[in-house]
Every structure is written in C-alpha cells, then in structure tokens.
C-alpha cells in the first residue's frame, strides 16, 4: 500500500487505505504510548503499578479519617464515592487541557497520526479511571454492602464522566495554552471546588446559596447520581433532571467538537512556544 502524506497550513494527514500491517503498527504505537504514560507515573517505585490502585484508595482513606473521626461525619461511603469521583473529574479535565501539547506521543523519528495519539490518551484515561475506581468499588461492595451491579455502574459512570470532562478540557485547551495564567486560575478553582462541590459531603448537607450554586455545577450531578446508585444519602432525585440532561448534552457536544478539532489544534501548536 502506497502511503501519501499531505501537509498544508490546515492539516497534516496520511492518505491511502492502510493495509493490515499498518493497523498492527498503529496498535503497537498506541500500546507503547499508553505503557510509557503509566511508567512515568510509577517510575522507581518499589510497588510500581500497584500505586495506580493504592494512591486513590489511600487519599480517600485520609479524607475518610479527617471527616469521619475528626469531624465526626459517620457517612464514610459518601466520602469515598464523592472523593473518588472528584479525583476522576479533576484528572480528566487536566489531561484534556494538556493533550494538545503532546505533539507526537513521544516518537521522534516519524510523524504519528493524531488518531493514534488521541486513541492512546483515551485508552490511558480509561485504564487509569478503572484503576482509580475499582478498589473503591470493591470496598463499597464488601465493606458497605453496596449491590454488585451498583458497584459496576459506579465504575462505568466514572468512565463516562471522565470522558466527558476530558472532552471539555480539550475544548478549553487552546485558550489555556494562549493564556497560561488560566492554568493557575483553573488550579485554584479545582482546589476550591473540592471543598465547595459535593465531593466530601452530599448536597443534602448544603444550604441556601451553597446549594443553589451547586444546582448548576456539572460535577454535582455525577457525584449525586453515583451516591444515588450506591444507595447512599443523595439528593439526585430532587435535582432538576432537565438541567442534568442539558449539562450532559452540552458536555457530549463539546467532547465531540473537541475531539474533531484536536488534530487542527495539535497541528497549530507545533510552531508555538
């Protein structure tokens, strides 16, 4: 099969129908990029990949201790669900914002198509979110009597939420790259959001303006839905489901547009510093 690379100011794309061996090479590249990303987060650590599962668990346990023992909040399950969901939301948003800076997936001797780079990123996100949520889900099932189906739905929902916020991150990535100061602003917002959003406590504990603001917080709906499915104290059914529908639709649309535009955005970044 004769490959043809076409380059202009709008795109850089490989044309021609790929043969089977090209597909093998593509899979090998995705695999290499995904493994590389995980190796970077676990390098030189004795427990290696185990940290991908332990880290979210230990962080959740710390917050559990703080808000169960110190603050006398007995709703441990609610904390585990909320904190885990927030971690997934935060990491997905940050990865989405940074994905256009990954110009070639680490390869230096050949141009790698955006499809391969993004497929690798999505694959990495899916595995990472699964690892973040699976141990928590197991604890919820075994320790707090959560239904197995509910536990699996929790893991699945975290994937959906992660994917949507990854797409949102992609859409805002050009602005964040043009105005790097926004990274600081977003970092502060995420830190504040952890305490203001229903991450460590359900919306049922919010009052007045605090509650009203979170009625328009996209994360709040996912966190409350996760609590609802886990049969934990949740106000999901009291929330405006129409707003939830609009939020999910908007996020889905942004994700779609973001993924469609990512090639162009990535291509533009090659001459920016």
């Amino acid at each position: 099969m004769q490959l043809k690379l076409e380059i202009n100011e709008s795109f850089c794309k490989l044309t021609g129908k790929p043969d089977d061996y090209e597909k093998v090479i593509k899979r090998a590249r995705i695999s290499f990029i995904v493994k590389s990303k995980f190796r970077k987060t676990t390098k030189r650590r004795f427990l290696g990949y185990l940290w991908l599962v332990l880290d979210p668990f230990i962080i959740s346990m710390i917050y559990l201790f703080v808000f169960s023992v110190v603050k006398s909040n007995p709703n441990a399950a609610s904390i585990l669900v909320g904190v885990t969901m927030y971690r997934v939301f935060q990491s997905s948003l940050i990865k989405g914002m940074g994905c256009i800076r990954d110009l070639n997936g680490g390869f230096k001797a050949e141009r790698i198509s955006t499809k391969v780079v993004i497929s690798a990123e999505i694959c990495h996100r899916m595995i990472d979110i699964f690892l973040q949520t699976i141990l928590i889900s197991a604890i919820m099932i075994l320790g707090f009597g959560m239904n197995i189906i509910a536990g699996l739905i929790f893991v699945f929902m975290a994937q959906i939420m992660g994917f949507l916020f990854f797409g949102f991150g992609v859409i805002i990535s050009p602005i964040v790259n043009q105005i790097p100061d926004l990274q600081n602003v977003i970092s502060y917002a995420l830190r504040l959001g952890f305490y203001v959003s229903p991450a460590m406590y359900p919306m049922a504990r919010m009052e007045g303006m605090h509650y009203k603001v979170n009625e328009y917080n996209p994360f709040a709906y996912f966190a409350e839905l996760a609590r609802y499915l886990s049969d934990i104290d949740s106000t999901f059914m009291d929330l405006n489901l129409l707003v939830f529908g609009v939020i999910v639709s908007l996020l889905s649309l942004m994700t779609y547009i973001g993924l469609m535009r990512i090639d162009k955005l990535r291509w533009r970044m090659t001459t920016w510093s």
């Binding site: 490959l3 043809k4 100011e9």
Partner: peptide, 22 residues
C-alpha cells in the same frame, strides 16, 4: 517535510513512508 512543523502557507506531498533522523 517530516510533518513535525506546520507551514504558515503552501503544501507538501510525500509519496512513501518516511523516516526522520534528527
């Protein structure tokens, strides 16, 4: 030409697989 940098204008066509040693 290797596809690592975006041109401001113009176009490039490459027929075949390329390897870029940099």
């Amino acid at each position: 030409i290797a596809g690592m940098l975006r041109p401001a204008s113009g176009s490039i066509e490459i027929n075949g697989r390329t390897l870029f040693l940099s």
